[in-house]
Design a protein around this nucleic acid. Structure first.
Length: 174
DNA sequence: AGGAAGATCTACT
DNA sequence: GTAGATCTTCCTA
């Protein structure tokens, strides 16, 4: 998928990322693959649940970067994997919350944003890189798999104190 | 349900 | 330079 996929409203991107495959290439050449089954959309300063609400800081600055930028933010012990959406100068991103491991050699589950990055060996060094950089070790591909329309559910975002009056979480039932 | 985890920012000295 | 507040996931009751 090219930049135009990410250069849209994060709510649309979040929904369209469901079913896509994360491909993580390790330094030793091994591939770890996982199908995305849960995402959340985050907007700019006006979104009370978005990291952008603090204004630009060292750890969230990439939210204002161009579409397809990788944003890795750490929350205590864990890393959160996000993809920046919309054009440069507008803060928005999609948080990847869960995935189904597809590789046989996969160790660990991806049943939460912190666990997912741990299983895929994604850490802060990815922050600020672009999904379109060659050999960045991380990309998203569309393998043609489609969930049925009724399988994709929506809800309010998880772990959020003050949410917008909108359902910005997308996930696969069960 | 409650508790533990580390980086970052602010406000002080 | 340092002390304190803040932030959210994940694990174990």
């Amino acid at each position: 998928m090219d930049k135009s996929f990410y250069n849209r409203n994060p709510k649309i991107v979040a929904k369209d990322l469901i079913g896509k495959v994360i491909v993580r290439k390790l330094e030793n050449g091994n591939l770890l693959k996982a199908r995305i089954i849960e995402t959340e959309a985050y907007f700019d300063e006006k979104d009370p649940a978005s990291w952008a609400r603090y204004g630009k800081r060292r750890d969230n600055a990439e939210m204002w970067n161009e579409a397809g930028t990788i944003l890795v933010k750490n929350v205590h012990k864990y890393f959160m994997l996000n993809f920046v959406t919309e054009k440069k100068g507008e803060a928005s991103a999609v948080l990847i919350r869960a995935a189904i491991p597809l590789s046989k050699n996969f160790k660990g589950r991806c049943h939460g944003p912190g666990l997912l990055t741990s299983a895929l060996k994604i850490d802060k060094i990815f922050n600020g890189k672009s999904l379109f950089e060659k050999n960045c070790g991380l990309k998203i591909v569309d393998d043609g798999y489609k969930f049925k329309e009724g399988e994709i559910k929506t809800s309010k975002r998880i772990g959020v104190k003050s949410d917008l009056n909108e359902e910005l979480r997308f996930y696969i039932k069960g």
